[in-house]
Design a protein around this nucleic acid. Structure first.
Length: 469
RNA sequence: GGCGACGUAGCCAAGUGGUAAGGCAGAGGUCUGCAAAACCUCCACUCGCCGGUUCGAUCCCGGCCGUCGCCUCCA
């Protein structure tokens, strides 16, 4: 097995991944701020984060994955107040829809989803630790991180803040900060905002604090992987590093993995352009969410993805090709249950090449496009071998095993709904009886009826197969 | 102004110092009920433009043009 290489934002290079503790990976994925329904750009980040975790597991590593849910923040406070609700009431439906969307996209559950509001004591302790080490100052009841006290600030983003530049959008007069680079750790209570009474004053946490507190609490002071999208590199992740390393004096994260954005029709999603899509919206447009998952994975995570509805149509058709092949493999593998014969080794060759190519692609910084390429090459060459009669039941069984082997990583294979089968089969049987009687009008009527129910038929010399349209 | 990414066929997109994966669309063909679906074949002498390095560059270097992102909340 070759090495898994991942692009580490810290070094701007693809590095061989080796966990700190052999065999065990601890990863933190930046999760949602729940003031809104999540859009498909958010989902892209969660999907590849999940695939990273799946691939690590596929390589035999045990993974502990944590994803935060940020449920206290400026927009949440503002919206909740406008709705006349408390934070928990306001955020609950968004948290619920977040999980529902993930499930529909086949994103597996992380091991924990800590919430910021449940981590106030740990955050306060972190601020106190930073204070003890001389990295903070207070002004008007708020506590700030003094960036000048920490060597190496900026090592992740390589951003140097020039306070004098007219282009710097950092507002240096905000919150009584001593320096534009400084950032707030703990915000003093204002007006009627929700606040916690703590040893460092009555107030609420700054934006970056929860991620440092929760990740270190659940994964340790130094852990392996931290994922997120590129926009978080600065200031969020840079400040997480400052808070965490300032408090512990130890390296915080070993591999920073950032994914590119998803654009809609070449443009960034934004409310003003009205081009934000949520998962339920995609669904109500009539698309199968598996097509969305496929579309998201067809572009490697570090490449900008230009999303269009055509990409969903393309994905849907590509998935049909995959499903037809799966059906063909399945049918042949079941054709001779026991004394399954192997033919000339054609299948073994295809399988070997497929698994090697798949792994090579995934090892190269999670090249999912290359991995899919390997799959489609297997499908074409497999179909040719089938047509030439070089694949017998035993070979097909091997193909099936190979396909099932990669299934847990990409998880893009269409699933059958078993309870449909009996009903479908009855209609197919009736249609085939009509065909046999050369009553094509009736057989076509039955076929069309199936089509209208979303079932496509494939007549083959061996019988009729069906799949979902 | 600073930092960074990208520009490969109609669309999406991988990739390598030695002459371009894959998917979709399109065109042919096989099977078949002159049906549907499926399957196969074909489809970039060329990788934004111009120089340079090299025996040889799409892939290395430099310049230019173009697109996009971050420097403020943001997946």
């Amino acid at each position: 097995m070759s090495d898994l290489k991942l692009f580490n934002t810290l070094t701007r290079e693809k590095e061989t991944f080796e966990p700190l503790i052999p065999g065990e990976v601890r990863m933190y994925s930046c999760g949602p701020t729940v003031y809104n329904h999540l859009h498909i750009g958010n989902m892209r980040t969660f999907v590849w984060g999940d695939v990273l975790r799946r691939y690590l597991e596929w390589r035999g590593l045990r993974v502990k994955q944590v994803m935060n849910v940020t449920d206290v923040e400026d927009k949440i406070i503002r919206n909740a107040a406008a709705a006349g609700q408390d934070l928990q009431t306001y955020t609950a439906p968004f948290i619920e829809s977040f999980h529902a969307s993930l499930a529909k996209l086949r994103v597996r559950k992380a091991d924990a989803y800590p919430r910021a509001t449940e981590y106030i004591p740990q955050m306060v302790a972190l601020v106190q630790q930073l204070n003890d080490r001389g990295h903070t100052y207070t002004a008007d009841g708020s506590t700030y991180f003094k960036v000048s006290t920490l060597d190496g600030y900026g090592k992740l983003s390589r951003v140097e803040i020039d306070e004098t530049s007219e282009y710097s959008r950092i507002e240096s007069d905000e919150y009584e900060k001593e320096s534009a680079r400084d950032f707030v750790l703990w915000k003093a209570k204002k007006d009627n905002e929700p606040a916690w009474m703590t040893p460092i004053g009555e107030g609420r946490p700054g934006w970056h604090l929860e991620c440092s507190a929760m990740s270190m609490d659940l994964l340790g002071e130094t852990f392996d992987i931290h994922t997120g999208a590129v926009d978080l590199i600065f200031p969020h992740h840079e400040n997480e590093i400052a808070q965490s390393e300032g408090a512990t004096g130890k390296p915080f994260v070993r591999y920073w993995i950032h994914g590119e954005h998803l654009n809609i029709d070449q443009q960034k999603m934004s409310k003003s352009l009205g081009n934000i899509y949520t998962v339920p919206e995609i669904e109500s447009m009539g698309y199968d969410l598996l097509a969305l998952r496929y579309a998201l994975l067809s572009v490697p995570y570090r490449t900008k993805l230009n999303f269009t509805t055509q990409s969903l149509d393309d994905a849907k058709n590509a998935l049909s090709r995959i499903e037809s092949f799966l059906l063909r493999v399945d049918e042949v593998s079941r054709s001779a249950p026991h004394d399954a014969k192997h033919s000339d080794g054609a299948a073994d060759q295809l399988i070997g090449k497929f698994l090697t190519d798949f792994e090579t692609a995934m090892d190269d910084d999670l090249n999912t496009a290359g991995a899919l390429g390997a799959l489609f090459t297997l499908i074409r060459e497999g179909n040719i071998a089938f047509d030439e009669g070089r694949i017998l039941a035993g070979d097909a069984e091997g193909l099936k095993t190979a396909l099932m082997k990669i299934d847990p990583v990409l998880d893009i294979f269409p699933m059958r709904e078993a309870n449909l089968d009996a009903e479908i089969d009855a209609l197919i049987e009736a249609r085939n009886a009509a065909r046999k009687a050369r009553n094509f009008a009736e057989s076509d009527r039955l076929r069309d009826e199936l089509v209208s129910r979303g079932i496509v038929l494939e007549d083959t010399p061996g019988g009729t197969r069906w799949r979902k349209a």
